[in-house]
């Protein structure tokens, strides 16, 4: 029994067009013309309880629109959503009691008050029983090391500290589903890693179902088991990360430091991707040519100082999917 089922979900927005110039303005006032933007277009997926899913796509691909519909603050144009047996926009309040939401770009904490005051406010908003509240606060303070700044006003926290507090705020009432909209945006490497570690742990120990939208594919690679890619409102990939690599990751990258700057470099079955002084980047398909063949060709023609071979990063794969589509 899936915890979230989405069937033929679409959201279309009317965007009114304004014509320029005097007459254009006048005619826009009399008869408004509009374009239909298909922000989400016939999307289908379902999530099992306890899954940890990365929901990714370029800016404007339809990620946030989907999340807004799942949380019940946006009504679909058509299609069907079932979240824990509820239709989110019809049962908004009931739904909000059982979900947690974190927006990386904004905080739900009270800016001028100590962190702990916002937590207490949430205790009352969600009517969390005192002992459960204490227990959860204890658990998250320990895990995210919140104690040193629990009584610091939110406006004085660093972005990383604030995000840890926002994560706690979203989880105090024991939600069954946690929606995260770009939770690592703007964080430094250490803070990002802390957030990822935390998400894995919360997912594993508390069976919270997590949906994560992000632009940082390291988040997805390190945290998620499953990846859904949306582009122009349509889902273009839904599956495991390893499967994605297997399917699209046949390209290998060879980075070579040449002993001297050769004027032109020509090799069969290999693309020169980039060149920077004596360093060159070569891409080849491992099905058509093996790494050792490429290296044999290279050493026969050029003098080489150093060489590294890399599998494509998930980032590279997704970029190619965005650019070229799925095939």
């Amino acid at each position: 029994m899936p915890i979230i089922t989405v069937e033929h979900l679409s959201k279309h927005f009317k965007v009114y067009r304004r014509r320029t110039g005097f007459w254009g303005n006048l005619s826009s006032t009399v008869a408004r013309q509009h374009d239909i933007i298909r922000a989400v277009d016939d999307v289908n997926f379902s999530l099992e309880r306890g899954e940890l899913v990365g929901y990714i796509g370029a800016n404007g691909a339809g990620k946030s629109t989907t999340i807004k519909m799942l949380t019940g603050i946006l009504v679909p144009t058509s299609g069907h959503i079932d979240v824990m047996g509820l239709t989110p926009y019809r049962h908004r309040k009931e739904n909000t009691r059982r979900i947690g939401v974190v927006f990386g770009q904004r905080t739900q904490l009270w800016w001028d008050l100590p962190v702990i005051d916002s937590f207490e406010l949430l205790k009352h908003i969600y009517e969390i029983p005192q002992n459960l509240y204490k227990q959860n606060l204890e658990f998250f303070s320990e895990l995210l090391q919140l104690r040193p700044f629990l009584s610091t006003p939110v406006r004085r926290l660093s972005l990383g500290q604030r995000m840890r507090c926002d994560l706690t705020a979203a989880l105090l009432h024991d939600p069954e589903i946690l929606y995260l909209d770009e939770p690592t945006i703007g964080l430094d490497v250490v803070a990002k890693e802390q957030v990822r570690q935390f998400l894995r742990q919360v997912n594993a120990e508390r069976q919270v179902t997590v949906i994560l939208t992000t632009h940082d594919l390291n988040d997805v690679e390190k945290v998620c088991q499953r990846l859904i890619i949306i582009d122009s409102g349509k889902i273009i990939y839904d599956g495991g990360i390893d499967a994605l690599k297997e399917r699209y990751g046949k390209t290998r990258m060879l980075i070579i430091d040449l002993a001297q700057g050769y004027s032109d470099i020509q090799l069969e079955g290999v693309d020169l991707i980039r060149r920077d002084g004596n360093r060159i980047w070569l891409a080849f398909d491992r099905d058509t040519i093996s790494a050792s063949e490429v290296i044999t060709q290279l050493t026969a023609r050029y003098e080489i100082q150093d060489l590294t071979i890399s599998e494509p990063e998930i980032e590279e794969i997704v970029r190619r999917i965005y650019e070229l589509g799925v095939h």
Binding site: T71, R92, T96, R97, V101, F103, R106, Q108, Y126
Partner: peptide
């Protein structure tokens, strides 16, 4: 203007 109203909407309140 800031969209913070969405955060209020997501609360049982």
């Amino acid at each position: 203007r800031t969209g913070e109203v969405v955060t209020d909407l997501m609360k049982p309140i």
